[in-house]
Design a protein around this nucleic acid. Structure first.
Length: 564
RNA sequence: UGACCCAUGGUGUAAUGGUAACACAGCUGGUUUUGGUCCAGCCGUUUCAGGUUCGAAUCCUGGUGGGUCAGCCA
């Protein structure tokens, strides 16, 4: 490699994360010819950006290593699950641009097989039916530092256990009356190994199996086996399942058949984002208590919320890439997410001029009924997007905050007696300020320099500021929703004795009505994204109707002018 | 007073025993018909203490700090 005669430039190899390293080892060693991963949501809520990280990881690995990725619903708890969530999850995964291999899988598809494995474990003396109440079981389990106590039912014969289990299945018992437990070790230092419950009785209707079953397997007795059935090679989950891995392996040890693919569980750190909460329970609370308009409120960190806010699938992939994969607990600065959407939209978004808080400007030396069309660049980062024409006339709107009667030299926008450029139009100079009785500025009287058409100075004189503007006569009215972070605290659920809702930002939504937009926006459709010059990236909301366009601000432009 | 896991700039992620790299944030400055973009520079004696080694962010031991586990949730 360091041979001086060797003129080969070593390939710049992007470093692998620890999961990719494991996969490459497994592929190189021949342990697996092909990898199969899976994304296994429980359909009991909407997906959030943390799930997006997991989806991108699992499907990304499948693509990178030319393997497969399954989508499997972990639907073993009929009390909490619903097809509404199934539908939203399907939509979100597809929106992110991923295609699962084959059909959609459901853990409930495996209930028969799971039942048979349970019977096998009973016959092998590795599982027993326990009559104790939930509370008794809990007490008998001990604590992390004190070993548990064995159940009085622990040494029933296989025959008795089998009979009882069949009767559980047949509906002979009420909810909670009996459970099936694995017979492992009540004194294990790992709580999960203290005879974990495998099956519980729930007389509830399941969203897919209806009333066929009244016993349902627990997560631990379902997940690994589902992986096994599907031939999953790498079962990737978050850190809190680390302590479950010995149990995952224990069940696998007792059902595994030589020659089949044996799945391996690998854990990575879940995503945490600053200034928001990520748990399904807390997000549901925000929805139920109407702090937001729904799961897809643009302030929510849900995939559907981000989508409505204007985030693109590409931006979330860019974000996931920057965030990386590791085992360290983390809180990612929400600024990184914002950077990611700017990065994508800067390259792709149509530019347009819109005035949020209009201030009337009359060009006193511009002919009364004259109007002209001025060419404007659609995206300076992408020539192929071409140009459009923007109408100019005597009466215009500029942004209120772009004018100050008097200001220091750091303020290089419009001031009384000062000159600025109107983007793609002319240089204008402000000569007079008109105010109402209360002293509020209502109008500016300006003159333009006809020779500066297009914004180029004819005599080489410079202006420091360039403003966006809209012709009053041609402007269309739009309503704009400005969003700020939902919480005012960096880690709203990180305070011991405080409810996360105490940190809700009361100003997370500002609605501006009758903003003035360039006519180009007339035909904008729900979901269209734009850069409003000098302001930020915006996305047309689905709430828009016939003749009123409603627009969400996705994210402001970076602003290095932090005077004010 | 258990088991398992983690520890590198403000925030994340690399460096796989051989000069601590990249991104974001922040701060300077340059370019610019968006105070955007783009470009350049600045910003860490790798949690501590020992040990192994010619050489340690990396391996070993111990400490400290943090996380997870006591659902018939996933």
């Amino acid at each position: 490699m360091t041979d001086k005669n060797n003129i080969e430039i070593p390939e710049e190899k992007k470093s692998l994360n620890f999961i990719e390293q494991i996969i490459e080892e497994d592929l190189n060693s021949g342990k697996h010819k092909e990898i199969i991963t899976r994304f296994p949501p429980e359909p009991n809520g909407y997906l959030h950006i943390g799930h997006a990280k997991s989806i991108i990881l699992n499907f990304g690995l499948g693509e990178k290593y030319k393997g497969k990725t399954n989508l499997r619903f972990d639907d073993t708890n009929p009390a909490k699950e619903d097809t509404e969530y199934v539908d939203s999850i399907l939509e979100d995964v597809q929106w992110l641009g991923f295609k699962w291999h084959g059909k959609v899988h459901y853990a409930s598809d495996y209930f028969n097989q799971l039942y048979e494995w349970a019977v096998k474990l009973i016959k092998d003396g590795l599982a027993y039916v326990d009559d104790q109440s939930g509370e008794e079981i809990s007490v008998m389990r001990g604590t992390p530092t004190k070993p548990g106590t064995e159940s009085p039912n622990r040494n029933r014969t296989a025959e008795e256990n089998l009979d009882l289990f069949i009767r559980m299945k047949n509906g002979d018992f009420k909810d909670g009356e009996k459970v099936l437990r694995a017979k492992i070790d009540m004194s294990s230092p790992n709580m999960h190994m203290r005879d974990p419950v495998m099956y519980r009785i729930k007389h509830a209707e399941h969203h897919r199996t209806g009333n066929k079953w009244c016993i349902y397997p627990m997560y631990d007795f379902t997940h690994g086996q589902s992986d096994y059935i599907e031939g999953i090679t790498h079962s990737i989950c978050t850190l809190e399942f680390e302590n479950h891995r010995p149990l995952y392996d224990w069940f696998m040890d007792h059902i595994y058949e030589e020659g089949r693919t044996r799945p391996r569980q690998i854990e990575f750190a879940r995503l945490n984002l600053s200034y928001t909460v990520m748990s399904k329970r807390k997000l549901a609370e925000l929805v139920e208590e109407k702090y937001v308009s729904g799961w897809n409120d643009p302030r929510m960190p849900t995939i559907s919320g981000l989508r409505r806010r204007g985030y693109t699938p590409e931006s979330l992939k860019l974000f996931a890439d920057k965030v990386g994969i590791a085992k360290r607990e983390n809180i990612i600065d929400v600024g990184l997410l914002e950077y990611s959407i700017r990065e994508h939209l800067n390259r792709t978004a149509q530019r347009v001029m819109t005035v949020l808080n209009p201030l009337k400007v009359t060009i006193t030396n511009y002919p009364e009924n004259e109007e002209e069309l001025l060419p404007a660049i659609n995206n300076p980062e992408d020539e192929t997007m071409g140009e459009r024409e923007v109408p100019f006339s005597k009466i215009l709107y500029i942004e209120k905050e772009d004018f100050k009667e008097v200001a220091n030299r750091k303020f290089f926008r419009l001031k009384l007696g000062g000159e600025v450029r109107l983007r793609y139009a002319y240089f204008i100079k402000c000569n007079e300020v008109i105010k109402d009785e209360t002293g509020q500025i209502t109008e500016l009287l300006c003159t333009y320099d006809p020779l500066s058409k297009g914004g180029k100075s004819p005599d080489g004189r410079k202006v420091k500021g360039t403003l966006h503007w809209v012709s009053a006569k041609h402007a269309i009215d739009v309503d704009i929703r400005l969003y700020d972070r939902l919480f005012s605290d960096e880690s709203p659920d990180g305070h011991k004795n405080k409810d996360f809702k105490e940190f809700i930002n009361p100003n997370s939504l500002t609605v501006l009505e009758n903003c003035k937009a360039e006519p180009f926006l007339k035909n904008a459709k729900s979901g269209d994204r734009f850069q409003f010059e000098r302001l930020g990236y915006f996305c047309v909301d689905k709430d828009s109707f016939e003749n009123k366009i409603i627009i969400n601000r996705t994210v402001p432009l970076r602003d290095s002018w932090k005077n004010k």
